[in-house]
């Protein structure tokens, strides 16, 4: 009622302002009172409906709520040592709260004079998928739905066309006759289309050739997923579910720390291990020794020797991404060729 009279005063005080408006004040007076009541009823109803529509927001978990600290956190490349430490402390607290254990989380930088390369021996791979599961355990991926960085294709002999591959083979034993196996994961391209398309530079290539993602910077547009010719990127469509006992507490900012929902992730060549001289988890678990990893800038390294001596190819060379992930066969070039190559060099 109070408001109603106020409205009337306002409208009458407005009348002189609207000069010569025949209908503005005089003929509008009576309808204004009635229509004001109606208007406020409609407005109240609309507001109530809008509030009701917003109700699901009440269920937002506390750690998913936007905070000032998260809002102000800078891009990875812009953070100085202290700021990185603050971010790591925050993440550490969040992990401890969620998993009841304090993680060993660090920001591990690339080593000088190192460029990592992966080589996978197609002659030896038997398609056991041990690498797939070791990777999930190492990198704290969501278990439900399970996010896997490695996809093993069961290929019929006589083709390298991935469209002929079977993604969901399920034999009691492997390898099956007449097939070979081709595991695919992030190829850490030297010309990565995923990095090019990201609108916010949330993903980039590091000095050692590993393409990384700042999970706190990604806006979740999934353009990189569309751009990747190897289907190497995964998106957290829901909040990743990881049982407390399965947490790997040794983690780094750019690789295997637990991810929030709504961001993209992928293989990082286990940089929290490999930048400290260890091998990636998928390699360590491989029962046949099909996986080789190392520094291509060191001519004596195993991968350098493989690239030099074995028959090697990259997947989808025509898309021009220059992968750092090579497939090879046991068979070597004839020794004479090697000698010739040395001479010409």
């Amino acid at each position: 009622m109070n408001q109603n009279t106020k409205q009337n005063q306002e409208s009458s005080s407005n009348t002189p302002a609207s000069v010569g408006g025949c209908s503005g004040g005089s003929c509008g007076d009576k309808p204004t009172r009635r229509s004001f009541l109606r208007t406020s009823a409609v407005a109240a109803g609309g507001l109530a409906a809008a509030m009701a529509a917003l109700k699901p927001l009440m269920e937002l978990e506390s750690e998913d709520r936007p905070t000032v600290e998260k809002f102000l956190q800078k891009h990875y490349k812009e953070m100085d040592g202290d700021e990185m430490q603050t971010a790591l402390t925050r993440i550490s607290k969040e992990v401890e709260k969620r998993f009841d254990q304090r993680p060993d989380i660090r920001d591990i930088k690339p080593m000088d004079g190192v460029e990592f390369v992966y080589a996978l021996n197609l002659t030896r791979c038997i398609g056991c998928r041990k690498c797939v599961h070791a990777c999930v355990a190492e990198n704290n991926q969501s278990r439900s739905p399970e996010i896997q960085y490695i996809r093993v294709l069961e290929m019929p002999r006589g083709t390298t066309n991935v469209e002929k591959g079977n993604h969901h083979y399920d034999h009691p034993t492997v390898p099956s006759d007449d097939h070979y196996y081709m595991p695919v994961q992030c190829h850490q391209c030297a010309n990565p289309p995923c990095v090019k398309v990201c609108p916010v530079e949330a993903t980039w290539q590091e000095a050692d050739g590993i393409t990384v993602i700042d999970y706190d910077w990604c806006i979740g547009c999934r353009y990189c997923e569309a751009a990747c010719p190897y289907w190497a990127r995964r998106f957290n469509f829901t909040k990743p579910k990881l049982p407390k006992k399965d947490l790997n507490p040794k983690m780094s900012y750019l690789s295997n720390r637990p991810r929030p929902k709504g961001v993209v992730e992928k293989c990082t060549f286990c940089l929290h291990r490999t930048r400290e001289g260890k091998m990636p988890a998928c390699l360590e678990v491989c029962p046949t020794g099909a996986r080789k990893f190392g520094n291509v800038l060191d001519p004596e390294s195993e991968v350098s020797q493989i690239l030099k001596n074995n028959r090697v190819f990259v997947l989808k060379e025509e898309v021009g991404t220059l992968p750092r992930f090579f497939y090879y066969f046991d068979e070597r070039y004839p020794a004479s060729d090697e000698a010739k190559a040395d001479k010409t060099a």
Binding site: P66, H75, V200, A202, W217, C218, C221, R222, K261, V263
Partner: peptide, 10 residues
């Protein structure tokens, strides 16, 4: 967007 709350990164 997966993270509309981080849109300001744009």
């Amino acid at each position: 967007l997966g993270r509309p709350d981080q849109m300001h990164h744009m």
